[in-house]
């Protein structure tokens, strides 16, 4: 019997993780191939794979994937470049926080997807509009979370820095930022995950390329296999980016694990 908080070994962990995927696909195959669910509504895994192969080889789906990835990464990087410094300043300087925090907290709850029609009016249906959806969806979240992280920096570390001769700027640059860098990286990883949901919404409306556009096209053809393939691809890309982010964080911040 497993006991609370008892760690499991690396190989057990991987085996268990994979076995749920197998279980999931088995249940899906059973429901569809066994004839319990109409194929009009839910394609079986085999059809899904065939449709997916067709998409990749015949319909240039790789291009759609590339476009979507670029939109997410582009909008996200834009948001991060602006939000991280603002968040750090808000965490460090309380007056700046008092100035911006109420607005950012409010803006955070504006749903990015609701901006899509408005953004089409403002920016047309080009790439700019897609990037802006991601940007709006991410920027306020990052600002707020980074500000909280920086604001919670251990006071005694800051005091130690002052007694060692740091000035205010030195404290921000050489204490607040390095102390919170791993947490900021973790915040970015989290928000990048959310950015994926916004891009699809942006692509469902007024778009001629991207994974979301393919899904909408497939809906018209009742090609559920293709739609599911698209959704699964998003999941896989998310998994990969998450993994890369984690690996990067581990190598950037060895002191965290030391």
């Amino acid at each position: 019997m497993p006991r609370p908080l008892e760690p499991v070994g690396q190989s057990t962990r991987i085996t268990l993780g994979i076995s749920f995927f197998i279980l999931f696909f088995a249940a899906w195959a059973f429901a569809t191939l066994g004839g319990f669910v109409s194929r009009t509504f839910l394609a079986d895994p085999i059809t899904m794979m065939q449709d997916g192969w067709l998409l990749l080889t015949r319909f240039g789906f790789l291009g759609d994937i590339g476009v979507t990835v670029w939109r997410v990464v582009g909008g996200f990087i834009l948001a991060a470049i602006i939000a991280v410094p603002i968040g750090i300043l808000m965490g460090a300087y309380k007056s700046f926080e008092a100035f911006l925090e109420p607005f950012v907290s409010f803006a955070r709850y504006l749903p990015a997807s609701a901006f899509v029609p408005l953004l089409i009016l403002w920016a047309g249906i080009g790439e700019m509009q897609k990037l802006l959806v991601i940007f709006i969806g991410s920027v306020f979240q990052i600002i707020l979370m980074v500000a909280v992280a920086v604001g919670n920096t251990r006071r005694d570390l800051v005091e130690a820095a002052y007694t060692l001769g740091s000035k205010d700027q030195g404290v921000v640059k050489r204490v607040l930022i390095p102390a919170n860098a791993p947490e900021i990286a973790e915040i970015l990883r989290l928000v990048l995950g959310w950015a994926w949901t916004y891009v699809i919404v942006a692509e469902l409306i007024g778009s001629s390329s991207g994974i979301g556009h393919m899904i909408i096209d497939s809906q018209a053809l009742l090609a559920t296999g293709q739609m599911i393939f698209g959704i699964i691809i998003i999941g896989i890309i998310g998994l990969i980016s998450d993994f890369l982010f984690k690996a990067l964080n581990r190598s950037l911040f060895p002191w965290r694990l030391a």
Partner: peptide, 9 residues
């Protein structure tokens, strides 16, 4: 300080 205040990074 009484608490450990080395910079962990």
């Amino acid at each position: 300080f009484q608490s450990y205040t080395l910079f962990p990074w």
